[in-house]
Amino acid sequence: MDFDFKIGIIALPGAALANKTGSFANEVPVFKQKTCTGCNLCIYYCPEGVVYGDKKTKIYNFDADYCKGCGICAEECPVDDIEMVLVEK
């Protein structure tokens, strides 16, 4: 009896979503939404693709299930509108 792999141990598309990498994070971003210009750089630069939001409303947020807390969004925000805060564990 064979083990139930797809032949050659093939993985299904996007199956990595099952892995909640939010546990990596020591810090997470807070979008202060005071000076935001809607430039979208936080979306562009996020290595995980966890930042989302709207240019028009200038409301941005992040997916805490996957954010690894690198802080690039806060570092690169041209108007200093993102702050990193410690995660309570």
Partner: peptide, 12 residues
């Protein structure tokens, strides 16, 4: 779009 040649850890 399957992924071929994945990493087989000790568990698999």
């Amino acid at each position: 779009p399957y992924s071929f040649g994945t990493l087989g850890e000790p568990s698999v």
